[in-house]
Design a protein around this nucleic acid. Structure first.
Lengths: 177, 177
DNA sequence: GCCAGCATGTAAAAAGTTACATGATTCC
DNA sequence: GGAATCATGTAACTTTTTACATGCTGGC
């Protein structure tokens, strides 16, 4: 997997940001394939700064010293080079990371009602994701980002369609037993 | 995420197995949504045994003492209860864990040829996965497992179709620039 | 006799989560 | 003045990967 360091470099590529802003971007815009907690983010930013791939500027070094500085992080030329190199070396991999599939795999050890619940939950999860995805303002974003959203929508639709057909059929056959 | 402990319990639910066999099952049958290294697996089994959710029996306590025992792990009644409880409490979640989407998200900072490579790679990854999926002997497996495979195939097909259409279109528009 | 596959494990390091701890700013 | 949001960070813990280390067994 593309690690958090590289994700941060990618986010900073288009302009300087605070850690808080980076966190927001990852957990909103990227939530369909990636999230990050502060406990992972700040150490990652620290590491990147130590490697001089980013620099930080304290935004308020005014008279009064505050306990915590408000830093704005900026990608360096080395950081841009590193990002390019890592992306070029990244294999396009993908996996459905799915509790639903895992649980369903063991469905022959589960009660029919649990299986039915699982399918209902998954459908509602997919529908929730779908709502998120279609509410994104596609027209105002770069091509790559728009493409990613539409790709994810296509996958979501296929999963939903399959579940509505086959999943419902399984539920029906279970309740008949 | 459903953790490795629970996956192990699920695998052992249908019969006793060695760590090696569990590893093989996870990394072959489950590879579309889960993998596990030995370095994660054996400690997990040790933990489960300490909690008495599984027991182990040394298969060769013959005369000669070997450096490493060959253990067969068996799920206990407590283990079955624990498995049921955890599954019932599991939310059906799912996410596309994707280096492809991550890299593509930053495509406005990449060279056209890199983007093109990314799409080609992703298509070949999807096609590789597809081959794996259709080579599974569907007719001999439990309903739940067959359902999971077909669900994954449906998603894979949608992704491939989208990429073949939209992805190719992007490649063409890039090379025209 | 050798090689592929069976078999088990540990150690170091990486990566991340959760919970905690603190304080500033902005808008109502 | 209070609430929401902005903002940064640490500490303990959990999980996992990678690399190492060892040895048996069955088939050719």
């Amino acid at each position: 997997m593309l690690n958090l360091d590289t994700i941060c470099l990618g986010v900073l590529y288009s302009g300087s940001k605070t850690g808080y802003e980076i966190h927001k971007i990852i957990n909103n815009d990227f939530k369909h394939f990636q999230t990050a907690s502060y406990g992972a983010l700040y150490p990652a930013l620290g590491k990147l700064e130590a490697k001089a791939l980013i620099t930080s500027k304290n935004k308020n070094v005014q008279a009064q010293q505050q306990s915590l500085p408000k830093k704005k992080y900026t990608i360096t030329d080395d950081g841009r080079i590193n990002f390019q190199t890592v992306i070029k070396g990244t294999k396009a991999q993908e996996r459905l990371s799915s509790d639903f599939l895992a649980a369903f795999y063991f469905s022959d050890h589960l009660d029919p009602e649990d299986i039915s619940t699982l399918i209902d939950q998954q459908l509602s999860t997919l529908q929730g994701n779908y709502k998120d995805l279609i509410s994104v303002p596609l027209s105002t974003m770069p091509d790559g980002q728009r493409f990613g959203i539409r790709y994810t929508i296509a996958v979501n639709r296929a999963a939903t369609a399959f579940l509505k057909g086959e999943g419902r059929a399984i539920q029906t056959s279970l309740t008949r037993k």
